[in-house]
Nucleic acid binder design. Structure first.
Lengths: 123, 123, 123, 123
DNA sequence: GTGGTCTAGACCACC
DNA sequence: GTGGTCTAGACCACA
């Protein structure tokens, strides 16, 4: 695991977990790796994973059973999609749209690039 | 001027300047406000404006005449568009596309939101 | 049985037992459920029940006959009331009082809420 | 500063700050001590203060100006009172009431102790 | 100067 | 074994 983006590592880990939940790789009510296990998997200090888990818990996406470990909430998928969608439409879209108008990038160019991206992704 | 986004203030100011250049509000070879004036306008620490100007200078969008002030480069508009476009397609688009596939946001929804954005913007 | 409070589970179980003793549901000198039985009833790890029993034993509220099981002490009720009362007046009350003054909650509001609580409880 | 309670230090620090806000010792929109200053005042590791500040920020009681420091929100007092009151009535009161009925502590005893507490406090 | 993040290592209560 | 907290110290971007 390498963390190249400028985004902080603990948020990138949170994103990976959210992705796994949305994609059904991790099921609801399932136990997720312990802090130490996850730290090993991600090649990161346990404290960093603690931050990720805390963050996801504050969003209600995971919860904790004392002395046992962290579990995915029963409605985690729904919640995660909601939160991510909100984030996307409220924060990212306006920024994108602003840039597209500034740079005069027409919608069909965007579409084309998107199709190319998807086809690359599916190979 | 309020800077509430997570993006750093000096980059936000740089963006504002680029916007003014691309939109023709500021002409090429024109002198731009001094650091202090800009700091007052933006309600920001002068050091922050210094960083913005340095950044734009490193991109070749503005240049400095010692003792006189900062000026917009003769090809600033072209350069700015180039840089911004590269940034957009190389860094932002992949991120957006990834999220759109994760959140299963279809291209037509994107289009629709974009149209709505444009019509709002033009009011 | 769900243990969602921040208080540790073994203390919550101890509280439940104390409650049963004070309310006369469990009589003095009576044998209480074995660790395993209690663990099943509470849906909890047996080790957790062991801690609860150890704790109650250290308070002199229950005692152990080797190979037979745990029993309620002959003076358990009196002891339990004493201990709980001390705990309440020495630890909890000062904390409550501090908050009531900080939040400017007048005594009559407290009274009212208490009355409402009792009437609900007796339904 | 000594932290004797079983509550974690970072939450105790948060409580102290909330207290100062409610009591008007710190005004709204006022800058609060930097992380390092607070750490020195509280005789605590800066990271611990970071946690306190993060917590208070997540509650909307303080906010951050990049590179400048933390400030008390314009509606911090109202928010703090709301949050604390909710906490008190939803979490602490039921617990207290339950104990009072279990231990058969009459309301007048509670009142009396409260009056004694207040008079002590005012000496 | 400011906060934000990360690592390393420790200790604790709890299950 | 689990997570929670705290310390120490470091580096970074930012104003």
């Amino acid at each position: 695991m390498e963390f190249r983006e400028r985004k902080s590592i603990y948020l990138q880990i949170a994103d990976i977990i959210i992705e796994r939940i949305i994609n059904g790789i991790w099921e609801e009510e399932q136990r997720i790796p312990s802090v130490r296990e996850m730290a090993t998997e991600m090649q990161v200090n346990p404290n960093t994973v603690v931050r990720s888990y805390n963050y996801l818990q504050s969003l209600g996406i995971i919860y904790n059973r004392r002395g046992i470990g962290y579990f995915i909430s029963f409605d985690a998928r729904k919640k995660a999609l909601e939160i991510k969608r909100k984030e996307f439409t409220r924060e990212k879209l306006p920024e994108i749209f602003k840039e597209m108008t500034l740079l005069k990038i027409p919608i069909y160019e965007f579409e084309e690039l998107y199709k190319r991206y998807i086809s690359k992704d599916n190979i």
